[in-house]
Nucleic acid binder design. Structure first.
Length: 976
DNA sequence: GAGTTTGAAACT
DNA sequence: CAGTTTCAAACTC
C-alpha cells in the first residue's frame, strides 16, 4: 500500500491530477460562478483536495507523520538529544525490524510528497481560502487572532516548557536514552528532506497539507515550539496574522484538516470567542504530544517560549490559560501518537483507505478522536458523564471517543475542573489520559512535571483497560517493541502514546524510520495488514449492520465470537461514548479512522472461520440481523452497476416502507447496521454505539462545507439567542459535519485513490451517549432532551431555544436533518439510545451514501432523473419521525448542499445578510424543520427566489434529485 | 496483580 | 497453505 502510495501522493499533489476533477465538479463550477464568497473556499477546497486526492496512503500513517514531521518540524528544536545516542536506538529498532533499511529513502519520498503537497496547499489554500476567511467578518476576529494566536502559542509554549522537563525526567527515570537520539534523527530527516526555506511555510501553517502532514509536528510547533512557530510566522511573509491563526488552528485542530478544513477551522476559531483557547486546546494536545515526544525539552526553550508569550501578549484569561495548560498537560509524549493518528491521520491526507471500505480500526477510531479535538470542542458523554462539556469560548469541540472506557469520569472531571463552565459549559477535553486530566486540575507545571516524570512508570503500570479515557487504545507490548501487528497502536498506524505501557517501544515518532520500515515490511507481506479491519465487503449488504465486516474475519474457536478475543465482536462492541467530532474537513487528514463509529456491529461473515459463532451482530454464514427489511436487493451494488438514481430510489422506497417500523418500535434499526445500537445488552454491557461515520469529502463536499460554515456562522452570530454553543454547533456543522456514514456503495465503487474519496472533510459525529442503554435514567433524560433538542435544532435551529445542552444538538450532524425521535421524544432508555443511534445511523448512512453517491455520481445523475423524493411530504415526514428519519439521509444531503453557495443572488445584500438568508433558507428549505412548514411569507418569497437558484444549483450539481423534489415542495408551500 | 485463556500474528 | 510458535489482549481469580 505504502510504496505505491507515495508516488500517488505526489501525483495527487500535482494540480493535474487533483485539481481538474475538482474543478470539473458541478459544485465547484457552481460555486465559482455563483457564490461570491464560496468560490474562494471552493477553490480552496478544491485546492485542498489535491492533498485529499492524494492517493490514499491509507495506512501509511507513519509516513504521514514523517512527512509532517520532516516537513514541518522544527523538531530540531526538540531534539537536543545527542545524535550519538540516536543511532543506537535506531540500530536496535532496525535490528528488531530485521528489514532492509530503506526508511530514509522512503521517508525522503514521503517528504517529497509532503512537500509537494504542502506547496500546493500553500499556494492554494493559504492565498485563497485563508484570505477569504480572514475577510469574513467573523474572521475579523482572526486578524486579531494573530494576537490571540500568539497567546496560544505562548501558552502552548509555556505548557511545553513545563512538560519538557518532566518528560526528560521521565525518560531519565526510565533510563531511556534512546529517546534523546530520536529527536535528532527526526531533525535530520526533516532537514534533509525539506529545505530550511520551506519550513517556515510549514510553520506558518499556510499549507494545508503541511498541517495535515504535521499533525504531530504542528502540534509540536504550535504548542511546544510555539516560540519557533511564532518566529516562523513572523518571519514568513506568507503568514499574516490571520493566516497564522488559521494555519495554526488548522494544524492544531487536526491532522485531518485539509486546505478546506483550514478555512473551516479558521472560521471556527474565529467564531469562538476564545479562539485562543480553542486553538490552543486543540492544538495543544497535539503539539504537546509531539513536542513531548522529544524528551529533550530544554529549559532554555521553555524559558524563551515563556518570555515570548509574556512579551508578545498578555496571557489569556486565566480560564483560557487553564484550559491551555490542561490541554498541554493532557498531551504527553506519546499521546501524541495516541491522540494523533500519525500514521493514519497523517496519511489520511495522502492516503485514504477508502477502498477497504469503512475500515474501522479500533485503534484508528480511537485515534481519530484526537484529531477532531483539536479542531473541535466536543461534548463528551461518558457513561457516567453525560454532561456536556462544551467549549463555549471555543468553537472547538473536543471529541471524546472511547471504547468501553470508563475512565472518562476522570477526564471529564479534570476537564470540568479546569474549564470554566458557562451555561453551556465549555470544556476543553483532553483525550486525556488521566494524567492529562490531573495536570489540568493542578494546572501547575510542577504537577504536570511530576506526572510526566511518573509517566513512564505509569505507562508501565498501565491501567487494566487497554484504552485510555479517551478511548485511545494503549498497548502493552513487551517483546515486539510495538513494531508488529500485535501492537494495537502500530497496527492502527499510530504511534504509541504515553499512556501505553509498552516496553522498548519503537513505535514513536523518534523512530519514524524504523516504524516506516517495519510497516513496509509488513505491508510487503500483507498489503492489507494495516488496512482497516472492518470493511464493507462489496458484495455484502450495505444496509445491514453486517454489511461492515471484519476484513479477514475471525477464527474463534472457543469464544464463540462472544468475547473480545473475537475481532469481529470486538469491533462491534467498540463504541464511542459520546462524541461529537468535527473533522476538519479537509482532510486530507481524514482518516478512515476518523470515522466515528457509534457502533460497528460487525457481525461475523462467511469469511470468518469461527466455530460456534454466536456473534450477535451477525453470524457466520448470514449477514447478521437483518430484519430491517433492507436487503441486499435494496442496495445497489457497489460496483456502480446501478445508477445512482436507481439506488436512491430503491433506498427511498425502502426507507419509506421501513420508516414506520423503525420508529414504531425499538426497531429503529437503522438501515445501516453500523448505527444500530446493540440490542444485545447482554453481550454488551454498554450499548456500544459505534457510529462509523466516514468522512469522505469529495471536493465539492468540502467546498460546500466551507461555504456552509461561513453562512452558518454569520447567521449564527446574528442569532444571539442561539448562543455560543449553538454557534459552535452550527459552525461545526457548517464545518462539514457531515455525519456520514461511510458510503458503502461508494466505497465499493469509489476509486480509493480518487481525490474525491480521499479526504473526508469533516466529521461531525454525534455519538450517542456512551452506554446509551446502561446510562442512568437521569443522565438519559438530559441526554434525551439534548438529543431531541439537537434534532430539533437541526431541523429548526431558530425555532428552538438553545439549552445548555444545546451543544449536543450540533452533535447531531448539522447536516443531519435529524428527525425528531419518535416525534417529540425518543423512546426511553434503550429506545432513546436507539433512537439516537438510529438517527445517526439512518442519517449518517444516507448522507454518506447520498453524498458519496452524489459526489461520485453527480455528473452521472441528472437531477431530474434522480428524484428520489419519497412519496411523503417532507413535512409530514418531519412530523412523523419515522419517515423523516429515513429520508433524513437525503435531507441531509440537501442540507449539506445548501451550505454551499449562498444560493441567493436573490438575497439583496450579500454579506452577512445574504448568508443568513441563505442559512435560513437552508434551514427552512432544506431542513426538515423548515419543511415542517414554518415558512413565513417573507421567507416564502425568499424561498421563491432561492428556490430558483437552488434548483439550478441542484440540477447543476446533480443533487437536484433531492433538491428538486424539495424545492418543488417548498415552492408549493412558499408560493401561495 | 498474577496467572490463564484466547486468538491473531508471525514464523516455519 | 497448513501447522506451529509467539505474542499480547482479554479474561479469570
Amino acid at each position: 500500500m505504502d510504496s505505491p502510495e507515495i508516488p500517488k501522493i505526489i501525483a495527487s499533489t500535482s494540480p493535474s491530477s487533483d485539481s481538474p476533477p475538482v474543478q470539473e465538479s458541478p459544485v465547484f463550477s457552481y460555486i465559482s460562478n455563483l457564490s461570491p464568497i464560496q468560490p474562494v473556499k471552493a477553490s480552496h477546497a478544491a485546492q485542498g483536495f489535491p492533498g485529499l486526492s492524494s492517493p490514499p496512503l491509507v495506512f501509511t500513517s507513519p509516513r504521514i507523520n514523517t512527512l509532517r514531521e520532516t516537513s514541518f518540524l522544527k523538531r530540531p528544536q526538540y531534539p537536543q538529544l545527542s545524535s550519538a545516542e540516536k543511532p543506537k536506538a535506531q540500530d536496535e529498532a532496525k535490528k528488531f525490524v530485521d528489514g532492509p533499511v530503506d526508511s530514509k529513502k522512503h521517508i525522503t519520498q514521503l517528504q517529497m510528497g509532503s512537500i509537494t503537497d504542502s506547496q500546493d496547499c500553500e499556494t492554494n489554500s493559504s492565498s485563497e481560502g485563508v484570505d477569504e476567511y480572514l475577510a469574513d467578518p467573523m474572521e475579523m476576529d482572526c486578524t486579531n487572532s494573530a494576537q490571540s494566536v500568539n497567546p496560544c502559542l505562548k501558552e502552548s509554549k509555556i505548557s511545553y516548557k513545563s512538560e519538557a522537563p518532566s518528560e526528560q525526567a521521565t525518560e531519565d527515570l526510565q533510563g531511556k536514552q534512546t529517546f534523546d537520539a530520536k529527536p535528532v534523527k527526526i531533525k535530520e530527516l526533516s532537514h534533509g528532506a525539506l529545505p530550511s526555506s520551506e519550513r517556515p511555510k510549514v510553520g506558518s501553517g499556510i499549507s494545508v497539507d503541511n498541517a495535515f502532514n504535521g499533525e504531530y509536528h504542528h502540534g509540536l510547533h504550535n504548542q511546544g515550539f510555539g516560540g519557533e512557530h511564532q518566529d516562523d510566522f513572523d518571519h514568513s511573509p506568507q503568514s499574516p496574522p490571520g493566516r497564522l491563526q488559521i494555519g495554526q488552528v488548522y494544524e492544531d485542530c487536526t491532522e485531518n484538516v485539509g486546505g478546506t478544513s483550514k478555512g473551516i477551522i479558521g472560521n471556527m476559531i474565529l467564531h469562538a470567542p476564545n479562539k485562543v483557547k480553542n486553538d490552543q486546546g486543540g492544538m495543544h494536545r497535539r503539539c504537546l504530544q509531539f513536542e513531548e515526544a522529544p524528551p529533550c525539552a530544554t529549559g532554555k526553550r521553555d524559558s524563551s517560549s515563556i518570555e515570548k508569550v509574556n512579551d508578545s501578549e498578555p496571557p489569556a484569561s486565566t480560564a483560557e490559560l487553564e484550559i491551555v495548560k490542561v490541554s498541554y498537560a493532557a498531551t504527553s509524549k506519546r499521546q501524541m501518537g495516541a491522540s494523533l493518528p500519525p500514521l493514519y491521520g497523517g496519511s489520511s491526507p495522502l492516503t485514504v483507505p477508502k477502498p477497504s471500505g469503512i475500515g474501522l480500526h479500533l485503534n484508528s477510531i480511537v485515534n481519530a478522536v484526537p484529531f477532531v479535538r483539536g479542531a473541535t470542542t466536543s461534548i463528551k458523554l461518558a457513561d457516567h458523564d453525560i454532561g456536556l462539556q462544551v467549549m463555549k469560548s471555543s468553537a472547538v469541540v473536543s471529541h471524546h471517543l472511547s471504547e468501553n472506557v470508563r475512565d472518562d469520569t476522570e477526564t471529564s472531571i479534570a476537564a470540568s475542573s479546569s474549564i470554566t463552565q458557562s451555561p453551556h459549559t465549555v470544556e476543553f477535553e483532553h483525550l486525556g489520559s488521566p494524567l492529562e486530566e490531573r495536570k489540568s486540575d493542578s494546572q501547575n507545571v510542577d504537577s504536570y512535571k511530576e506526572l510526566n516524570q511518573s509517566s513512564s512508570q505509569k505507562k508501565r503500570k498501565r491501567t487494566p483497560s487497554s484504552k485510555d479515557s479517551d478511548g485511545c487504545k494503549r498497548c502493552n507490548c513487551k517483546k515486539t517493541k510495538c513494531l508488529k501487528l500485535y501492537c494495537d497502536c502500530f497496527a492502527a498506524g499510530v504511534y504509541c502514546a504515553e499512556t501505553c505501557a509498552c516496553q522498548g517501544c519503537f513505535n514513536i515518532p523518534d523512530y519514524e524510520d524504523t516504524v516506516l520500515e517495519t510497516r513496509q515490511q509488513i505491508e510487503a507481506r500483507n498489503p492489507l495488514a494495516f488496512a482497516p479491519k472492518i470493511v464493507q465487503l462489496e458484495e455484502e449488504i450495505q444496509f445491514t449492520p453486517a454489511s461492515a465486516r471484519h476484513k479477514r474475519g475471525c477464527n474463534c474457536k472457543k469464544s464463540m465470537c462472544l468475547k473480545k478475543y473475537c475481532e469481529c465482536y470486538q469491533v462491534s462492541n467498540t463504541y464511542l461514548y459520546f462524541h461529537v467530532t468535527v473533522f476538519v474537513i479537509f482532510s486530507f487528514s481524514i482518516h478512515p479512522k476518523c470515522h466515528f463509529i457509534l457502533k460497528a456491529n460487525v457481525g461475523c461473515s462467511s469469511g470468518c472461520r469461527c466455530d460456534g459463532c454466536k456473534n450477535v451482530y451477525g453470524r457466520k454464514g448470514d449477514y447478521g440481523p437483518i430484519d430491517h427489511g433492507v436487503t441486499k436487493d435494496m442496495i445497489s451494488d457497489k460496483a456502480g452497476k446501478e445508477t445512482f438514481d436507481e439506488k436512491l430510489e430503491m433506498v427511498a422506497t425502502k426507507k419509506d416502507a421501513l420508516s414506520t417500523e423503525l420508529y414504531d418500535s425499538h426497531n429503529h434499526t437503522p438501515l445501516t447496521p453500523s448505527f444500530q445500537c446493540s440490542d444485545h445488552a447482554d453481550n454488551v454491557p454498554k450499548s456500544p454505539c459505534l457510529l462509523t461515520s466516514y468522512l469522505r469529502s469529495p471536493e465539492s463536499d468540502l467546498t460546500v462545507i466551507s461555504s456552509y460554515e461561513k453562512s452558518t456562522r454569520s447567521s449564527l452570530r446574528n442569532s444571539e439567542t442561539s448562543g455560543i454553543l449553538l454557534e459552535t454547533s452550527k459552525e461545526l456543522s457548517g464545518m462539514g459535519y457531515y455525519c456520514w456514514q461511510e458510503d458503502y456503495d461508494n466505497i465499493g465503487i469509489a476509486d480509493t485513490f480518487s481525490p474525491r474519496y480521499d479526504a473526508a472533510p469533516i466529521i461531525c459525529h454525534i455519538t450517542p451517549l456512551s452506554d446509551l442503554c446502561s446510562k442512568a435514567s437521569a443522565s438519559s433524560t438530559s441526554s434525551r432532551s439534548d438529543w431531541k433538542n439537537a434534532s430539533q435544532v437541526q431541523l429548526c435551529p431558530e425555532s428552538q431555544g438553545l439549552s445548555s445542552n444545546s451543544s449536543l444538538r450540533w452533535c447531531s450532524s448539522p447536516l443531519t436533518p435529524m428527525t425528531r425521535l419518535g416525534g417529540t421524544e425518543c423512546s426511553q432508555g434503550l429506545d432513546f439510545d436507539h433512537g439516537l443511534s438510529d438517527i445517526m445511523q439512518e442519517e449518517m448512512p444516507d448522507i454518506l451514501k447520498d453524498i458519496s453517491a452524489t459526489n461520485k455520481s453527480v455528473k452521472v445523475s441528472s437531477p431530474n432523473k434522480k428524484r428520489v423524493s419519497p412519496p411523503h411530504n417532507h413535512n409530514h415526514e418531519l412530523g412523523a419521525s419515522s419517515s423523516g428519519s429515513l429520508r433524513s439521509g437525503r435531507k441531509f444531503i440537501l442540507k449539506a448542499v445548501p451550505s454551499f453557495p449562498p444560493l441567493t443572488p436573490c438575497s439583496s445584500s450579500k454579506g452577512s445578510n445574504t448568508i443568513q438568508s441563505t442559512r435560513n433558507l437552508h434551514d427552512k428549505v432544506f431542513t426538515p424543520g423548515c419543511h415542517c412548514g414554518n415558512f413565513s411569507q417573507l421567507e416564502a418569497e425568499d424561498a421563491k427566489i432561492e428556490i430558483k437558484n437552488h434548483e439550478a444549483f441542484w440540477e447543476l450539481t446533480g443533487f437536484g434529485f433531492y433538491r428538486n423534489s424539495e424545492v418543488k415542495r417548498n415552492r408549493a408551500r412558499a408560493i401561495p
